[in-house]
């Protein structure tokens, strides 16, 4: 598929917004460190989940495990390899996560659906356990919470929220473009063929082994990079607990609600899952003036996510991205 003029305009528009308008207009650090940074990190992880689930059709539930692998790999690389450039460390941590992805993707060659989900849960629990139990990964830090190193690129350290945001925008832009290209190209076609009917795909000469493991590896790469960015720019610390199964579920929800099989769905879903609790909290604080307990609010949030998933499964299995497309088409017709 070729890129149209529209695609180019959209891309330039997005770049102008994210690199010019946002840095100029948004001054408060809160917006960067609590909304934009985690949004972009989680959106990147969602792209990873999207690749394996939305494109290759493999029901995996262990994104947070790969994120943990990436985060701790990055920490150790910067700690142990002198003068390693940040982006090299970031790429290597993605590759390390990808290795785990291949390992835990192996069961996908035999099983699918919920069977695969259980197999991938092993990665979630195993990776987090491994990091927690072997002191080397945490540099024998007994407190359990390690402060992440500063991001230093070409001798300049990127520590303020705006600087970190720019680093993330760069990484996310590059990887998103890459993902869009993969999805449009033969790689993505193979994934979708396997998703839609693996036996037919196989008989057309697509190697299931290659395609599935490739999807797992690339997915884990994205999750690994996202995990490293998440730890270094959002959490600013490294602790295995931050990457528990709840985070995996969150990323799964981002992909399901955002829309399976679309890159934009990853961004929309991540924004929704991240912003909805913020909205709910501010309603609790401003409308009810804190009369509603915080635990009740978080329970309501859970119920709403669950109900939305059910509703989307019933009425629009392709999620919010499709909803958005429908709305756009309606306006275009007029």
């Amino acid at each position: 598929m070729e890129y149209t003029k529209n695609d180019l305009i959209n891309f330039l528009l997005l770049m102008i917004i994210s690199l010019l308008i946002i840095p100029i207009t948004v001054k408060s650090g809160y917006w960067y460190s609590s909304i934009l940074i985690p949004w972009l990190c989680l959106a990147l992880a969602s792209i990873g989940q999207q690749i394996v689930m939305g494109y290759a059709g493999q029901l995996a539930l262990g994104a947070a495990g790969f994120m943990a692998a990436g985060a701790f790999a990055c920490y150790n690389l910067i700690l142990r390899v002198p003068d390693i450039p940040f982006f090299v460390a970031l790429a290597l941590s993605g590759l390390i996560a990808a290795a785990f992805g291949i390992l835990f993707g192996l069961p996908s060659l035999r099983v699918r659906g919920i069977y695969l989900m259980v197999a991938t849960l092993a990665s979630q629990f195993f990776i987090v356990w491994m990091i927690d139990k072997f002191g080397w990964f945490k540099n024998y830090d007994s407190s359990g919470i390690i402060t992440a190193q500063d991001i230093v690129i070409m001798g300049k350290s990127f520590t303020s929220p705006l600087e970190m945001y720019l680093v993330i925008v760069f990484v996310v832009t590059v990887l998103t473009l890459l993902a869009i290209n993969m999805a449009r190209g033969s790689t993505g076609r193979n994934w979708m063929a396997v998703r839609d009917m693996d036996i037919a795909a196989e008989s057309m000469g697509i190697s299931l082994l290659r395609t599935k493991l490739q999807a797992f590896a690339i997915s884990a790469f994205y999750c690994g990079v996202a995990g490293a960015l998440f730890a270094f720019t959002y959490l600013k610390s490294l602790e295995p607990v931050a990457f528990d199964i709840k985070l995996s579920f969150k990323i799964l929800f981002m992909v399901i609600l955002g829309g399976l099989g679309t890159i934009s769905g990853a961004f929309i879903g991540a924004a929704f899952i991240l912003l909805f609790p913020v909205l709910l909290n501010s309603i609790g604080n401003n409308v009810f003036h804190g009369a509603i307990d915080a635990t009740i609010i978080s329970s309501i949030e859970q119920v709403v996510f669950g109900v939305l998933i059910i509703i989307f499964m019933i009425y629009e299995p392709l999620g919010m991205a499709k909803l958005w497309d429908n709305i756009r088409l309606k306006f275009k017709k007029k």
Binding site: F249, S299, Q302, V303, G306, V307, L308, I309, I310
Partner: peptide
């Protein structure tokens, strides 16, 4: 989704 609803 149902599981999340029930937990919540």
């Amino acid at each position: 989704g149902l599981g999340f609803v029930l937990e919540g």
